[in-house]
Computed example of a mutant assay.
Amino acid sequence: MKEQPLLIRDVPVSERPRERMLKDGIHVLSNQELLAILLRTGTKNESVLQVAQHVLQAFDGITMLKDATIEEMCKLKGIGVAKAIELSAAIELGRRIHNYMPEERYVIRSPEDVSNYVMEDLRFLKQEHFIALYLNTKNQVLHRQTLFIGSLNASIVHPREVFKEALKRSAASLICLHNHPSGDPTPSKEDIEVTRRLQQAGQVLGIEMLDHVIIGDRKYMSLKEQGYVK
């Protein structure tokens, strides 16, 4: 009597690749199961798991699969052009992730570093831009965010908006800065008040505000150096 093909619906639900991935995590899946998820469907006579097994057998496990062409994949039963393209795209994406080298992050060790980082972007602006630089434990810039545009005052610059991004980025600390369109970086009463409010909020949240730097025209002023940031 001819043996009936094993279809994916014949596999217990708890043992199907997608269900196992959701239940136990992707790391427990075999290469066959990962391939089966990418292939999605089998053929009339074979389950997707069996088709995945044929692919692995044809390419010596995953050893040669990374270099397989679409034409070579299409020679296998159950693999058409669409599936071959999807497999090739997944392999290429994995290769790019493996080879990815993060760009070197800018390190801030002084107010001068802050100035060098933003001076040319800010010194010609006609409105005040309030910006936060979010840093990791090595004082590398994780993210730069323009938070407010307009005259600086305590009602506009709310600590909630400043520190929301810090929490989102898991930042260890932050540096605030803004420009003075007049070109004179001397802090105003409002600048000092905003600085104190933000510093207090950072102390509560455990995210240190390292400085508030005011950018003028080729000049800057650090409120930390002026004694307003402790």
Score class of each variant (00 low, 15 high):
56 L>R: 07
21 M>C: 11
40 R>H: 09
165 E>K: 08
202 G>N: 08
54 H>N: 13
111 P>V: 01
202 G>R: 02
85 I>T: 08
174 L>Y: 04
157 V>Y: 00
35 L>T: 06
152 L>C: 07
184 D>T: 12
169 R>G: 04
149 I>R: 04
3 E>T: 11
78 G>C: 03
178 H>A: 03
88 S>W: 00
24 D>F: 14
224 K>P: 03
22 L>S: 07
139 N>Y: 02
16 R>N: 05
168 K>I: 15
197 R>I: 14
9 R>E: 11
56 L>H: 04
51 V>S: 03
83 K>S: 09
101 M>V: 13
56 L>W: 03
41 T>F: 14
58 A>Y: 01
39 L>W: 08
180 H>K: 14
57 Q>R: 10
146 T>P: 06
61 G>D: 02
34 L>V: 10
213 V>N: 00
177 L>M: 15
123 R>M: 13
114 V>T: 03
153 N>H: 15
65 L>T: 03
22 L>Q: 10
124 F>Y: 08
56 L>E: 01
165 E>S: 04
166 A>E: 06
37 I>S: 04
186 T>H: 15
5 P>C: 04
142 L>H: 04
91 I>R: 00
203 Q>I: 10
99 N>T: 09
56 L>S: 03
158 H>G: 06
16 R>H: 09
81 V>N: 14
196 R>V: 08
168 K>R: 13
87 L>I: 13
32 Q>A: 08
202 G>V: 10
47 S>G: 15
3 E>Y: 06
95 R>D: 09
10 D>F: 09
160 R>S: 09
130 F>K: 00
169 R>C: 09
221 M>W: 13
64 M>K: 11
45 N>H: 13
4 Q>M: 13
102 P>N: 12
17 P>N: 07
32 Q>D: 02
73 M>D: 04
170 S>I: 09
29 L>M: 13
77 K>V: 07
200 Q>M: 13
24 D>W: 14
22 L>W: 14
222 S>L: 11
183 G>V: 11
129 H>N: 14
70 I>C: 06
189 K>N: 06
16 R>E: 01
9 R>V: 10
123 R>I: 12
67 D>G: 11
148 F>W: 11
104 E>Y: 04
97 I>D: 02
154 A>F: 00
77 K>Y: 12
218 R>W: 13
140 Q>H: 12
166 A>W: 01
184 D>C: 12
120 E>H: 00
144 R>D: 03
132 A>V: 05
80 G>C: 02
66 K>N: 04
215 I>R: 01
210 L>N: 03
226 Q>D: 04
127 Q>D: 13
21 M>W: 09
15 E>C: 10
124 F>I: 02
158 H>T: 15
102 P>A: 13
180 H>P: 09
199 Q>S: 05
1 M>Q: 05
201 A>W: 01
